[in-house]
Design a protein around this nucleic acid. Structure first.
Lengths: 335, 335
DNA sequence: ATGAAAGCGCTAACAG
DNA sequence: CTGTTAGCGCTTTCAT
C-alpha cells in the first residue's frame, strides 16, 4: 500500500504532527527528529497526498485555464506561458477546451469549482453573463487573457486591439499604400472583431484616406480558411488595392496562398500585414510582417497576476500589453 | 460560506448519507426524499467538493499528460484529442511541459503522484529508466503516445515510423525521383530519429537506388530552424538531388523557405515531402505533401485506452496507427 | 428507505 | 520541542 503520514510517524517514532511540521517547514522540531523523519520518508518512499492536503488547507495548488480551442497555435503559446509560470510556483494547470460552446464552458466552470482550483484564467472569448455569474459564485481569483470585459470588473491582460490595428494600418500607409483592404475575423466579436476594424478605419481617416466599405470583408473566425475565402471575395469585389491588413496571421497566410495561386506576387504586387506574430508568421513565404502580441509573455503575466491575487486576496490591475510591428518581408514600400 | 453536504442534509431533513446516495445515484431512497434533497441542493447552490470525494474514493477524475513542448503544433493536436476524450468521460487533464528536461519530468511525475491522478499519458519522448521506475511506483495506468518503449512493458499508440518513412520515400521514388535527400531530426532519437532514417534507406535499397551518406543530414530537433539549416547544408554539400524527405513538416517548411530564397522552385525544380500532416502543412506555399499521423485521433485512442485500463484494471494492447500519404502540391512526378 | 458513525490522509490548534 | 485531537467534506458499512 501507499504509505501515509501515519506510517512515517510510526516508523520514525514521532507523531504525525511532527512529520507534518517537517514536511511543511514549520517551526517546532529538532535537527535530530528531522533526520529521523526524513530517513523514514526516504525508506518508505513516502509522498504526501495532495488531495488530503487540499481538503484541509483549502488550497489545491492547481489552476484552471479555459481556451476556445487548445489546439490553435495562438492558444498553445499562451498556455505555454501559463504553464511555465504555474510550474515555477509549484502549481498545476488543468486545461479546458470550451470549443466556444456555452454549455461546455459552464460545465467546465462547474468542474473547476468542484475541484476547488485556486484560480482561473479565461482566454480569448467574450465573457457572457452566465460565465461571470458562475465565476463570481466560485469566489476565487480570475484573470482574463486576450479578452476583456467592460461590464464586469475582472482584471485582464491584453493588447489594445484598436491601437494595434491602427498601428498595422498606419505602417502600411507609411509604406506608401493608399488603397488598403482589410480582412476581419468574426464580425460581431467585440474583442477581436470590431476594435480592429475601428483601428483600421481610424488610421485611414487620420491620414486622409477614404474608407471604402467594399474594401473590408468579414469571415467566420480567424483561421486560415477564412483568410482564403475572404481574400477570394476581396479579389472579386474590389481588386484595386495594394495592401491588405489581415486580422490574424492565419488569415494573412490564407490570403498569401490565394495571392500565390492567382499569380499575385507578395510583396511586389501586393503587401500583406498580419496580426499576432505566431510562430507560423516567420515560416511563411515570404515571411510575414505582422503586429506582434507577446502571447507567451501574456500568459506569464496573467499567471503572475493570478498568484498575486491568490496570495494577497486583493484584485490586480488590468494590463494593456504593448504590441509591436515585426517587419519581415510581406510588405513593400511603394512610394 | 460554501455549502457542504451537511448543509444540504440539514436543509432537507435527511442524513448526509442519503444526500450522498442521491448524488451518486446509488439505490436507497424514495422519490419524495430525492425531490426534497434536490430542492435543497438547488436552493443552496450546492456543488460537491471533488477534493473530499477524491480523498475517500481514491479516484480524482483527473489525468496527467506530459509533453516535451506544449506549444508545439504537434503537441497541441494530441492534447486536443486527449482533452476531448477526457471531457466526454468527465475527467480533467493536467498538462505538464517537460521541456525535454529530466529533472523537470521527474518533478512532474512526483506532482502527478501527489495529486493522485487516475492515469498518465506520456508523449513524444524516449522513456528513461528513472521515469519508468517512478511511473511503476505510482501504480496507475500509463499510456505512451507517439513514443514507445521496447524495454518496458507500457502500452503505446504510435505510427510505425520506419514504415511511414519508407512510404514517404517510396512515394518519391514512384514519382520518378532517384536522387533523394533526407533531412532527419535529432540524430540519436530512437523513436523519431533512427527509424525514419532506416525507413528511408530501406526504401532506397528495395528500389535499387544507391544510398549515399552525403545526402542525409541531421538536425538538433524537428523544428523549422533545423529545416532551414539542414537544407542550406544539404545544398552546399550535395546539391544534386531532385527530392527531399523531411522528417517533420516543420523541417519541410524550413526547407521550403530556403528553396524559395535560393530561387529553387518547388515542386518544379525540387520536390519535398514532409511528415506529420500538421495544420501548417496545408497552409504552406505550395501546400505540402506529407505523410500523415492522425494526431488528434491518436490522442483520443490513447485516452480511451487509459480509461479502459482504469476501469478494468487490466493493461491495454499497444496500437500501431496507420499513416497515410496526403498528396498536395510539393511533389512533382518527373518521369 | 434511512441514519449513525467510522474513516480517507492531512493540518492546526491546544496542551504539555 | 512534541503529542493529542478535532476536524476538512465526503463515502460507506452497519444498523434499524
Amino acid at each position: 500500500m501507499i504509505p501515509t503520514i501515519k506510517d512515517v510517524a510510526r516508523k520514525a517514532n514521532v507523531s504525525t504532527a511532527t512529520v507534518s511540521r517537517i514536511l511543511n517547514e514549520l517551526p517546532g522540531y529538532s535537527e535530530k527528529t528531522k533526520e529521523k523523519v526524513l530517513k523514514a520518508i526516504e525508506e518508505l518512499g513516502y509522498q504526501p497526498n495532495a488531495i488530503a492536503r487540499g481538503l484541509v488547507s483549502k488550497r489545491t495548488k492547481t489552476l484552471g485555464v479555459l481556451f476556445p480551442n487548445v489546439s490553435s497555435i495562438f492558444a498553445s503559446e499562451i498556455l505555454n506561458g501559463i504553464e511555465d509560470t504555474a510550474h515555477e510556483q509549484d502549481h498545476s494547470v488543468i486545461v479546458c477546451n470550451t470549443d466556444s460552446n456555452g454549455v461546455r464552458t459552464m460545465k467546465y466552470l462547474q468542474v473547476l469549482n468542484e475541484k476547488r482550483v485556486d484560480g482561473i484564467i479565461f482566454t480569448s472569448e467574450v465573457l457572457k453573463k452566465e460565465y461571470y455569474d458562475a465565476l463570481v459564485e466560485m469566489n476565487i481569483p480570475i484573470v482574463l487573457v486576450s479578452t476583456a470585459s467592460y461590464r464586469y470588473p475582472l482584471p485582464f491582460v491584453k493588447v489594445d486591439d484598436k491601437h494595434a490595428a491602427y498601428s498595422a494600418t498606419e505602417y502600411l500607409i507609411k509604406n506608401g499604400h493608399k488603397k488598403i483592404a482589410m480582412i476581419s475575423g468574426t464580425k460581431d466579436d467585440s474583442i477581436a472583431g470590431t476594435p480592429r476594424v475601428e483601428g483600421y478605419i481610424q488610421a485611414l481617416k487620420d491620414n486622409n484616406l477614404s474608407y471604402e466599405n467594399r474594401r473590408i470583408v468579414y469571415g467566420i473566425d480567424f483561421g486560415y480558411k477564412t483568410g482564403v475565402m475572404c481574400m477570394e471575395e476581396l479579389l472579386k469585389k474590389a481588386p484595386d488595392f495594394t495592401a491588405v491588413f489581415a486580422a490574424s496571421d492565419e488569415i494573412a497566410i490564407g490570403a498569401l496562398s490565394v495571392a500565390y495561386k492567382e499569380g499575385i506576387k507578395v510583396p511586389d504586387d501586393l503587401s500583406i500585414i498580419g496580426y499576432d506574430n505566431l510562430k507560423v508568421a516567420e515560416m511563411s513565404i515570404p515571411p510575414l510582417t505582422t503586429v506582434a502580441q507577446p502571447l507567451y509573455e501574456m500568459g506569464k503575466i496573467a499567471t503572475n497576476m493570478l498568484f498575486s491575487m491568490i496570495k494577497n486576496g486583493n484584485t490586480a490591475e488590468s494590463r494593456i500589453i504593448q504590441h509591436r510591428i515585426v517587419e519581415r518581408q510581406s510588405v513593400k514600400n511603394i512610394q
